[in-house]
């Protein structure tokens, strides 16, 4: 591994920190505070990525944030990013309109082990906006469905109005080759589906714990609760993967802002096995 000093001088490091110009070519409001933006490179370059990877998203004059890619990995010409407004930069991202210009660099990080999961049952558990980084997994798996055993997706949201990718949820639910269950914490009169925590959906989907790979993304408490429940049902912690983000700045394991225990989450993560991160998720304020 090169020393920090030599990395500082390397041309490739400087290159990695330089954003490329992209334009917003589509904008879909998922909820009042969440949008999915379609972005294309101004120089026409494609961006191959693995499900679970993220891009550094630079809104000129405002700042840079890491945002997971939510599109189909087969469609590398247009990147989709699903963003919720939670701070100054993400608000600026959510406010972008078609034709606006932004800087992107990436993709970065280690994604979901989709290829390694082939031949196994797959359990995908998403909470809130955590569905966005898992959406490419579902696309990828359904594109080569015959290589997997049982495929189940469970999804928890705050309320019916907070559900993302609603059209796709209907499509997934209507498929005969996967199980899809959704629940909300708070219902309203329009909702005829499940109400309760996402772990309550686990008995509704079928998987063989001895040959299941679980992929979890959502609030860390939610991932911990689901991981514990899935472990109780017999899935080995090393087969449970979680996506954990920290304060990613450089995105290349250089600045250390995203250190979480022994890992720089931008480089070693964001996706890591629960067997490696589980203990850290119990440490307050780590």
């Amino acid at each position: 591994m090169p020393s920090i000093a030599s990395s500082l001088l390397s041309e490739s490091t400087a290159e990695a920190l330089l954003p490329s110009a992209f334009r917003v070519i589509s904008r879909h409001s998922e909820t009042p505070d969440t949008v999915t933006l379609g972005l294309e490179s101004e120089d026409g370059k494609e961006v191959p990525f693995a499900p679970g990877q993220f891009m550094m998203f630079y809104v000129f004059g405002i700042g840079e944030v890491p945002i997971s890619i939510s599109s189909d990995p087969q469609s590398t010409g247009t990147l989709l990013h699903t963003v919720r407004s939670v701070g100054a930069v993400t608000k600026a991202v959510v406010d972008l309109q078609i034709g606006d210009r932004v800087g992107l660099r990436g993709p970065y990080g280690v994604g979901w082990p989709v290829a390694a999961a082939e031949g196994n049952d797959l359990l995908v558990a998403a909470g809130g906006i955590g569905l966005a980084p898992l959406r490419p997994v579902v696309f990828d798996v359904l594109a080569r469905r015959d290589r997997f055993g049982a495929v189940s997706v469970i999804y928890g949201a705050r309320s019916p109005a907070d559900l993302l990718f609603v059209e796709e949820l209907h499509t997934w639910r209507s498929r005969f080759d996967m199980e899809f269950e959704v629940t909300v914490d708070r219902s309203d009169e329009t909702w005829h589906g499940d109400v309760g925590v996402v772990t309550g959906l686990l008995p509704r989907v079928s998987f063989d714990p001895t040959r299941t790979v679980a992929m979890l993304c959502g609030p860390e408490i939610m991932m911990k609760v689901v991981a514990n429940e899935v472990t109780k049902r017999g899935v080995a912690p090393e087969n449970i993967y979680v996506s954990v983000e920290r304060n990613m700045k450089c995105a290349i394991g250089f600045c250390g802002h995203c250190q979480f225990g022994a890992d720089f989450m931008c480089r070693n993560g964001p996706v890591l096995p629960y067997s490696r991160l589980g203990d850290r998720l119990r440490v307050p304020e780590l």
Binding site: R158, D162, R186, V197, G218, P219, M222
Partner: peptide, 9 residues
């Protein structure tokens, strides 16, 4: 559910 986890993710 009371933690309202999904609001701030």
């Amino acid at each position: 559910q009371l933690l309202d986890l999904y609001r701030s993710t």
